[in-house]
C-alpha cells in the first residue's frame, strides 16, 4: 500500500498520526486483497494476542483464536474475555443506563437536542475489566440490545484466508446467533446477580 511497511502505515493511520495528505493518498490507492493479512499483522504487533488475532469487531474488541482452538471476543485494552463471538458481547459487559434529562445533558450538552426523557434511554456498555466505553445505544425503554456485527468465522477462514474451517467442541463451527443461550440461562436461574462483574 506504500513504500513504507504496510503495518506501520495502518498503525499510523489508526492512531490519527497521519497528515491529511497521507490519508488522502491511502484513500486513493487501489485496494488489494492482501489488506486483511496486512491488517492482521499490524494487530498482532500492537495487541497482546499476537498471531491469535483473527479480526476486529469493534474499536476495542477483537475476535481471538484461543489456545484450545475456540474463538472469543476480547478487549484489546485489558484482554477481558467476552466469550463466543456468536453471543452478543454486550451480554457480558457492564451497562450504565441514562434516563433523565440531567443524565443526557452530561453528554449532549443542550437540552433541546437531547433524546426525549421517558421515551428514550441511553445505554453505555463498558468493558468489565478496564471500563473502556465499548458502545453507546439510544433506544426506547425495553428495547433489546442491538447485536451489530455477527461475523461468519467459517467463511472468514475458508474464503478469505484459504484455510480450513474452524471447529468448536461440538464439531463443525456453525454460523448462528447464540445470544439467547445466555438469556435462557439467566431466565432459568433465580439467583442474584454477580455484582462484581467479573465476567467469564
Amino acid at each position: 500500500m506504500s513504500e513504507r511497511d504496510s503495518r506501520e502505515v495502518l498503525r499510523d493511520l489508526e492512531t490519527g498520526r497521519m497528515s491529511w495528505d497521507e490519508v488522502r493518498e491511502i484513500l486513493r490507492q487501489k485496494k488489494t486483497l492482501n489488506r486483511f493479512s496486512e491488517y492482521r499483522s499490524a494487530l498482532s504487533e500492537t495487541t497482546p494476542f499476537g498471531d491469535r488475532v483473527l479480526l476486529r469487531v469493534g474499536e476495542y474488541l477483537l475476535v481471538v483464536c484461543e489456545p484450545d482452538g475456540s474463538h472469543a471476543v476480547r478487549c484489546l485494552e485489558c484482554e477481558h474475555d467476552f466469550g463466543d463471538p456468536r453471543v452478543n458481547w454486550k451480554l457480558s459487559s457492564r451497562v450504565r443506563v441514562r434516563r433523565t434529562l440531567e443524565e443526557f445533558l452530561e453528554i449532549y450538552l443542550y437540552e433541546e437536542v437531547c433524546p426525549e426523557p421517558g421515551i428514550a434511554e441511553v445505554r453505555e456498555y463498558y468493558c468489565p475489566g478496564c471500563f473502556t466505553l465499548l458502545c453507546v445505544e439510544c433506544v426506547p425503554t425495553g428495547y433489546p440490545p442491538m447485536f451489530e456485527f455477527l461475523p461468519d468465522l467459517a467463511s472468514v477462514y475458508t474464503d478469505i484466508l484459504g484455510d480450513t474451517a474452524p471447529t468448536d467442541p461440538e464439531g463443525e463451527w456453525v454460523f448462528e446467533d447464540r445470544s439467547l443461550s445466555k438469556v435462557e440461562a439467566w431466565a432459568s436461574t433465580t439467583t442474584t446477580v454477580d455484582t462484581q462483574g467479573a465476567g467469564r
Binding site: V95, E124, Y126, T141, W186, V193, G197
Partner: peptide
C-alpha cells in the same frame, strides 16, 4: 463508570 454501571445480567432483570 464502574459505580454507575451494573453487569448486563442485572440490567436484563430490571429492564
Amino acid at each position: 463508570r464502574e459505580a454507575a454501571s451494573v453487569p448486563f445480567e442485572e440490567f436484563w432483570r430490571t429492564e
